[in-house]
Structures are given as C-alpha cells and as structure tokens.
Computed example of a mutant assay.
Amino acid sequence: MVKRGLVGVGIENVTQKMADYMAMKTPKGALVNQVSEGSAAEKAGIKVGDVIIRFNGQDISTAETLPPIVGLVQPNTKVNLEVFRDGKVKRLTTELDALDETVAGLDSEDQDSVQAGIGFSVSKLSEQDKNRTGEDKGVIVSDISDREVQRAQLRVGDVIKEVNKQPIENLSDFSDAIDALKEGQPLVLLVKQGPANRFIVIER
C-alpha cells in the first residue's frame, strides 16, 4: 500500500466550449465534476463547476496535471489552491486526506481503489457517486494516466458497468476481469458517461 494525499474531487479537462461558457480566456486547469462528501475538497469549499488552476504554487494546465502533483504531497498536509469560479479566481486552503492506493492486484473488497496497470485507476462507488450517476453497481474511474486512454474518451467520473462483456458490480469483479485479459487483447468497456451509456474500446 502506498500512502499519498487525496483532495477528493472528480476532474476533467476544460474544453473550448466550457471555457467560453465560463468566460475563461483560455481552456486550462482541472474542471471539477464531483466533490466527495467529507473530503478535503468539500472542507475547502470547492464546488462542482470550479476549475482548479493552481495547487500549492504549481500551475495546473490540464486535468492530467493535477493527480501526480497531489500524489507527491503527504496526507494531512495543509495546501493552497486557486480555483476559477464565476469569472473570478478564488484562493482556498485545505488539509489533504489520505488515500490507500493499491499498486498490485485487488486482495479485499474492503479496499477503496485499484490501479490496474492499464493506464487508469478505479474506485468503488460512494453514496454520492450512486446518487449522482443513478448507478448502484460498477466502479468509477478515479484517475487517468495514459494518453491512449484519454484518446479513447474514457473520463474521470465514468461508471464502468462491463469489461469485455463481463458485468462489473464491484472492485473485485473489475480486478478479475482485468486479470483475465490476454496479452494485446483490446479492452472493451461499457460505461455510464453523463446521462447515457456508451462503449469505449482501448487498444493495448
């Protein structure tokens, strides 16, 4: 198990259309699409729709920039953030939560997340996730680290319902499905993305 800091937000990139809508001069930063209940983000006052543009003095150019920077900070450390909200920059302060991240396979249903070595990580559905998505089964994408996965249009906050036609109810199902993949076999996901389901194919 690896201890790292956790803000407790779901994020995505700011598109040009979103930047125009929010009156941002250029699309940059990490757009918050989810705030976990009781998290460091909620305590700081971060809201869905905020754009995180700086974290502890470092510029956040894209959503992919944020997780590695947060991961370098120890839990319970006080950090400063800048968010773009309603046309203005707002400065916030919070203390990071701790995340137990699985580096190898999933051993227990009590664990909260799994990093499968396939370019993205998933977590179990929280009650807030279930309310937001209308799904009570599956796993939620919590981090994306591979550009090919990004190009396939998998997003942080998507709920994975099937992996290669195998129903996914929890982290254990997901881990088993990933372990069953053959070398070079494409990853075909059925996900709940926004209000609709869609298939995403990730070449490996």
Score class of each variant (00 low, 15 high):
102 T>S: 07
54 R>P: 04
79 V>Y: 08
48 V>Y: 08
81 L>A: 04
47 K>D: 02
3 K>P: 14
169 E>H: 10
41 A>S: 11
135 E>S: 07
135 E>V: 07
77 T>W: 02
124 K>N: 03
50 D>Q: 11
147 R>Q: 10
140 I>F: 10
103 V>F: 09
106 L>F: 05
12 E>R: 12
76 N>K: 14
194 G>Q: 13
58 Q>Y: 10
20 D>P: 08
123 S>I: 11
161 K>S: 07
51 V>F: 06
190 L>V: 11
132 R>L: 13
54 R>C: 13
91 R>M: 13
199 F>A: 02
104 A>S: 09
73 V>Q: 06
17 K>M: 08
164 N>Y: 12
66 L>P: 00
86 D>E: 15
143 D>N: 09
178 I>T: 03
156 V>Y: 02
94 T>E: 00
72 L>Y: 07
107 D>Y: 10
16 Q>C: 05
176 D>L: 14
174 F>A: 08
28 K>M: 10
101 E>R: 08
37 E>W: 13
69 I>P: 01
112 D>H: 11
8 G>E: 00
56 N>I: 05
49 G>T: 11
108 S>V: 01
47 K>Y: 11
203 E>I: 01
150 Q>H: 08
187 L>M: 12
98 A>R: 06
176 D>K: 15
33 N>Q: 05
169 E>L: 04
47 K>V: 04
66 L>F: 11
66 L>K: 09
144 I>G: 01
185 Q>K: 15
34 Q>V: 10
22 M>Y: 14
197 N>Y: 10
119 G>N: 02
132 R>H: 07
18 M>H: 01
160 I>T: 06
185 Q>L: 04
118 I>W: 04
129 D>W: 15
164 N>M: 12
130 K>V: 06
55 F>C: 15
50 D>S: 06
204 R>T: 02
93 T>M: 03
130 K>P: 12
67 P>F: 01
63 A>C: 10
93 T>H: 01
124 K>A: 01
15 T>P: 07
85 R>G: 08
117 G>Q: 07
182 K>D: 03
49 G>K: 04
70 V>Y: 02
25 K>P: 01
177 A>F: 11
147 R>C: 00
160 I>P: 03
110 D>E: 09
24 M>S: 06
145 S>P: 02
173 D>I: 05
17 K>Q: 05
55 F>T: 15
32 V>A: 04
73 V>R: 05
139 V>D: 04
93 T>L: 02
199 F>E: 08
120 F>S: 09
30 A>V: 01
31 L>M: 06
29 G>K: 12
132 R>P: 11
138 G>A: 01
154 L>K: 05
118 I>D: 05
91 R>P: 10
39 S>Y: 06
83 V>I: 15
60 I>K: 14
195 P>G: 13
97 D>S: 08
204 R>W: 00
112 D>Q: 14
78 K>P: 15
199 F>H: 14
144 I>Q: 00
140 I>D: 02
69 I>V: 12
122 V>F: 03
56 N>G: 10
183 E>C: 04
168 I>M: 07
37 E>M: 08
38 G>A: 00
164 N>H: 07
171 L>S: 06
171 L>R: 07
96 L>D: 09
113 S>H: 00
119 G>W: 03
123 S>M: 10
171 L>G: 05
147 R>T: 12
100 D>V: 05
128 Q>H: 12
48 V>E: 15
96 L>K: 13
116 A>H: 08
169 E>D: 07
17 K>T: 09
107 D>C: 03
62 T>L: 14
121 S>R: 15
